[in-house]
Simulated assay, not measured.
Amino acid sequence: MSKTTKGLVKAFIITAILLAGLVFLTGGSAAKLAIRAHGFLFPSYSRTLVAYTVGEGQTLWEITGRYMDQQDKYRDCRELMHDIAEYNNLNGVKWLQAGQQIVIPLYKEI
């Protein structure tokens, strides 16, 4: 084993021991803090499906705009519009028909 590899192994072992000691000394609160941080970095969402009837002359863009403020997952309308199109198998469809039923998948952070 080279000097560099030995040094990396030692550094890894020392780091693991220090982290284990920190968790032990704080009664696991460090682990709880890490879990909360994970939720902040990678939020969880609950999905609600909303039935929608397309009105005369409505576009997917217009319908998407109506629901942007009712969801937490996307900041860009195009992302929600993509989800709606995928969920309803509308990829490649150029026009919506008046009276057509679609489902709007909305995601709220939990």
Rank of each mutant, 00 (worst) to 15 (best):
R75A: 04
Q70L: 12
L49P: 02
F40A: 11
Q71F: 00
N88F: 00
L33E: 10
V54I: 07
T48L: 10
D83E: 01
D83I: 02
A34R: 01
L106V: 06
Q97H: 09
G65H: 00
A16L: 15
R66Y: 12
S46V: 13
A31Q: 13
I17Y: 12
E109D: 06
R36T: 02
G21V: 15
T4R: 06
Y87D: 01
I104R: 04
Y67C: 08
A98G: 06
T59A: 02
T64I: 09
R78K: 12
T15I: 10
A98N: 03
L41C: 04
S44D: 08
Q100M: 11
E79F: 09
L8Q: 09
E56C: 00
H82F: 09
K3T: 08
G57V: 03
K32E: 14
L33V: 08
L19D: 09
C77V: 07
A16G: 12
K6L: 10
I84M: 03
H82A: 11
Q100T: 06
A98V: 01
F40M: 13
Y74D: 02
I13N: 08
H82N: 00
A37L: 10
D76H: 15
K73P: 09
K6C: 11
K73D: 07
G99W: 05
V54Y: 01
Y45D: 12
I104T: 05
T4S: 06
L18H: 02
V50Y: 15
T53I: 12
A20G: 13
L80C: 01
K108R: 14
G99C: 01
S46N: 14
R66C: 11
H82T: 07
I17P: 12
I13Y: 03
A85W: 01
H38D: 06
E109Q: 06
P43M: 02
Y52D: 13
R36M: 02
A98C: 02
L8W: 12
A98K: 06
L41T: 04
G55F: 00
A31M: 14
D76L: 15
Q97L: 09
N89R: 11
G92R: 00
Y107F: 08
M68H: 09
I84Q: 04
E62V: 08
K108S: 13
S44T: 03
Q70S: 11
G99Y: 10
V9R: 11
N91V: 07
I17A: 15
I13P: 00
D76W: 15
S44C: 01
I110Q: 10
M68P: 06
D83L: 02
T59M: 06
L19R: 11
Y107D: 07
